[in-house]
């Protein structure tokens, strides 16, 4: 790890101010992505701004048909939240599958979304649930937020403050874990909203998380696994590595989509 200056603001405005003053800076949330890259000397920000002491970034609230989760909320808080379990149980079930207990006790929702790892779970949930990502500057629809592998709509120094999820009538996530890393090799989140079904796929796409329009149309007409028969995603848009080439990933998208619909319709 290279040496860095460490800052610990206690409010969003203070953090934003620090970010504006410091060049070559990074926010640190749970650190479970950022710290390993720093240790391996792949990242070496001169300034590290820790969001951990900012109380206004934490917490889970429900108001009407919307569930809002603060950016610094840790996975474990989602798991323990009766509110989330009641509103969007699929979110709890998905969170159970994130990493291991260490990761779930340190990692944050905001960190996962800001990072937009192509195999992370939360980006799929945000996209399928039609979430709104709220920052210290604006509100960004999930459809506009995720812009490719490790790329988001966030500007330099922009802080995610919270994420709000419209509560769907039915939803589920089916994850095929990468054998080694346990991230999503393929993860499919399906959610039935009053205005239709959304299907988001993580882990598989060569350009990061994506929606599958053909599946959404079919499921909006008939929310049943069989509605997906004959629908496939294009192999040439899939990722490939030694554990799963593009053809296998494309195949798994179909299998996981069916399983997600089955789980959603069971519950």
């Amino acid at each position: 790890m290279y040496a860095f200056e460490y800052h610990r603001p206690t409010s969003v405005s203070e953090a934003a101010k620090l970010a504006g003053q410091a060049d070559d800076m990074k926010f640190i949330a749970g650190g479970h992505t950022l710290l390993p890259t720093m240790k391996m000397r792949l990242a070496g920000p001169a300034n590290l701004i820790d969001l951990g002491q900012i109380a206004e970034l934490r917490g889970i609230t429900r108001s009407g048909d919307t569930l809002t989760i603060g950016a610094m909320t840790r996975y474990v808080e989602v798991l323990n939240s009766a509110e989330v379990r009641d509103a969007i149980p699929a979110l709890v079930e998905m969170t159970e599958l994130v990493g291991d207990p260490h990761v779930r006790h340190r990692g944050t929702i905001g960190g996962s979304i800001a990072n937009n790892d192509p195999s992370a779970d939360y980006p799929a949930a945000c996209l399928a649930l039609n979430a709104t990502i709220v920052t210290d500057r604006r509100k960004i629809a999930a459809d506009d937020f995720f812009q490719g592998i490790f790329t988001t709509a966030l500007d330099e120094g922009e802080i995610i403050t919270q994420v709000s999820f419209p509560i769907p009538s039915q939803a589920a996530y089916a994850k095929f874990r990468h054998p080694a890393s346990r991230y999503a090799l393929v993860g499919v989140f399906v959610a039935k909203h009053t205005d239709g079904v959304r299907v988001a796929v993580t882990g598989a796409g060569s350009n990061g998380v994506f929606r599958v329009a053909e599946m959404e149309d079919a499921l909006s007409r008939n929310f049943a696994a069989d509605a997906l028969n004959g629908i496939s995603v294009a192999e040439d848009e899939m990722n490939g590595d030694i554990h799963a080439d593009a053809a296998y990933r494309a195949h798994l998208v179909g299998v996981m989509a069916r399983r997600a619909v089955q789980a959603a319709t069971l519950g």
């Binding site: 054998p179 080694a180 890393s181 590595d241 030694i242 554990h243």
Partner: peptide, 23 residues
């Protein structure tokens, strides 16, 4: 079922961490 160390054509170890090498 799980483990395998793989080098690519140029001799780079592509399973050089627990992210890729499955225990």
């Amino acid at each position: 079922l799980l483990e395998g160390a793989f080098y690519d054509q140029s001799g780079q170890l592509i399973t050089a961490s627990f992210n890729d090498y499955c225990m």
